[in-house]
Amino acid sequence: MNLQKIMIQTWAFVIKNWIITKRNVFSLFEILFWPVVGFFSVGLLTNFLDLNADMAGFILIGVISMSVIQVCQIDVAYVLLYDLWSKSLKHTFIAPVHPFQFISGSWLIGVIRSFIVFLLLSFLSILTFGFDFLKPGLVPLTLFLFGLFLISGLIGMSVCILVLIFGYKAEVAAWSITSLMALVCGIYYPISILPSPFHEMAKGIPLTYFLEYFRSFYGFEGGKNLLGWGFGQIVVYLVIEAMLFKIVLRRARKTGVLIKLSE
């Protein structure tokens, strides 16, 4: 294996997403408008409800995490969506690139974009609501963010898998999976309030553990070994999705999806 070649091939997807992002005015909305609007809507609601600082912090952690994941995962999903919309899918798949290269390349640009979102929102949270995201310290914050980025990669991969199965019909997944996860993982509330099947479901999603871990630094109850569960689940899902991706790509080459989506 030629490492330089692998790096160049992976970097191609960073460059592609970056060029399309900088040319597209809507990507500015994705980074600035929606996250900021969402942040202020929820933040001001906490003021109106006169929540104490801890409770407001609980919700702000949720809303910022949600924005970070949404921005990062959409970049991973875009790697195939841009090709789908341009009908150029076959040119990507006739090139000698591995799926891990286009996933990791697009994930990288997603990490950069969502980190910018995180910096912006955490700065605004100190400025407007007096909530300090750095309170837990740099290491816990880094681990928390790394977890969020990996979860975003998993969601983006899921969208790519769905695109290879359902084509255009799967576009909607790019915007809806994160919202569904927010419902189950306790973005705005503890999962203990969820009815039984959803409560169990939440335990099978790594985001639940990362939110509990980070909130534990603000006085909320956290379980034991939350990071272990979070990262452990991520590894398991990564392996499953990698295998699924391979199967689905093989299926796409068998059913002719790659050709149909390029016409």
Binding site: N2, Q9, W11, I19, K90
Partner: peptide, 27 residues
């Protein structure tokens, strides 16, 4: 490699950028 009639490449990339992108895919 392949070239098809009714060619489709990434819409918002310029001709040169498209060539650079696919060139990178070939390492």
């Amino acid at each position: 490699n392949i070239s098809s009639g009714n060619a489709n490449f990434l819409w918002s990339l310029t001709a040169k950028e498209n060539l650079h992108f696919y060139g990178m895919l070939y390492g």
